[in-house]
Amino acid sequence: MDYITNLFISMKSGMFVTFYIFSITLIFSLVLGIVVAILRLSKLKMVELVVSLYIFIMRGTPLLLQIIFVFFGLPIIGITFDRYTAVFIAFILNYAAYFAEIFRAGLQSIDKGQFEAAKVLGLSRFETYRYVIFPQMLKNILPALANEVITLVKDTALVYVVGISDILREGKIAVNRDATLLPFLVVAIFYAGFIYVLTNLFKNIEEKFEYYR
């Protein structure tokens, strides 16, 4: 038991790295996702085409490959990033594409009559989205959003490819050092605990939205 407790303490920095990558990616990809979703619904064909291509590339290739491309590939043409920046670029661009598709589906699920009612009532575009559309959209997309956020927690493990020491990498080091698989159990407990907290958080948010149908 002492060994496991010590492992938790020694892997603290790895846990922090995982949490850090998760948080930064989540915040920025959600914001970028909203922008991309609105652009994706643009009436300008060119904008819609470019955004669709971006989403296709992000969803059509593995995230691991995208991280490798940003960190190892771009320096070939003279664009260099440090490990963390490269990871954030790849993660944010990738997750923004997925979030954008969720937001787009959410926006399209709102009845056209809601937009029309807001329009005849004189609400501006911003007011329409702020008070009418987003609250309804959020309720519709919460389950899909929760799935994606949980996937993000586990995807953070991919940062090993550029040598960042997240929790999984630290676990592997401990396994090799101590010749036991117990560190992996600690890693599993960390991921499961993290996801348990997120699952409950989303459950609470979903319950908060149950005040209307």
Partner: peptide, 13 residues
Amino acid sequence: GYVFQNFNLFPNL
């Protein structure tokens, strides 16, 4: 003022 056929009330309000 416009009263829609299916009212289009905002369900979240």
